[in-house]
């Protein structure tokens, strides 16, 4: 999918240090495919004992809908499980906005077409305030120009993204396609390296 001129309402999760064990607890990592993880996204926050929904958790609040998750700083810390990105994507999120992302999560998200957008603490606070005032607040994302906008307020901020990753997202390709195209360089490197462990 293309992110250009993409607009959606948001789901707010104003918590810091949300770790990947919360995004998808370990006991749901037994699957050997990439599908179906969305059902257990934030499982232990979404459900009380058993199958009873926790009505206080934002995913169970029908007021908040949308394909953009807005979360507190240091989102995605902890385990490297890519299942966290798969779960967010499978649930239907296309974008996560936070003021800080853990490294591995950020990479995993980008490798799965889920766009992590890092904004300033102030801009993040403004988004949360705006959503609180109006749950139908829309955020517009323009990946080509690297701009995120709180539509109602006409407030914008630029975000950073690695040029290569941006091209991949815009065109739907993957790191692996590129790396495979460099096989000759890799083999030459193996032959010529100063010290080899092979």
């Amino acid at each position: 999918m293309s992110f250009n001129n993409y607009t959606s309402t948001c789901v707010p999760l104003p918590m810091e240090n949300v770790d990947t064990d919360q995004i998808i607890p370990a006991r749901f990592l037994k699957a050997t495919s990439r599908e179906g993880f969305g059902d257990n996204l934030f499982r232990d926050w979404r459900y009380l004992k058993g199958e009873t929904k926790n009505e206080d958790f934002v995913l169970n609040n029908p007021i908040y809908q949308g394909e953009i998750l807005v979360a507190g700083k240091n989102f995605g810390c902890g385990s490297s499980r890519e299942h966290a990105a798969w779960a967010l994507d499978d649930y239907g999120f296309k974008v996560v906005i936070s003021s800080f992302f853990a490294d591995i999560f950020k990479g995993n998200a980008l490798n799965n077409g889920l766009l992590p957008i890092q904004v300033s603490d102030e801009f993040l606070a403004e988004i949360f305030e705006q959503i609180e005032a109006n749950p139908k607040t829309e955020i517009k994302i323009d990946l080509e120009s690297q701009i995120v906008k709180i539509v109602e307020k006409q407030k914008v901020m630029n975000f950073e993204i690695n040029t290569f990753k941006k091209t991949c997202l815009l065109n739907g390709y993957d790191d692996i396609d590129y790396i495979i195209s460099q096989k000759e360089a890799i083999e030459a490197f193996e032959k010529n390296r100063a010290f080899s462990y092979a």
């Binding site: 490297s80 499980r81 890519e82 299942h83 990105a85 591995i104 990479g107 995993n108 490798n111 799965n112 690695n162 290569f164 993957d174 790191d175 692996i176 590129y178 790396i179 495979i180 460099q182 096989k183 890799i186 193996e190």
Partner: peptide, 20 residues
């Protein structure tokens, strides 16, 4: 360092990763 599953696949396929 730790990596996600997409990168596990890349490293198995090419013995390389794209890294900043």
């Amino acid at each position: 360092f730790g990596i996600g599953t997409s990168q596990v696949e890349q490293a198995m396929a090419t013995q390389c990763l794209l890294q900043n």
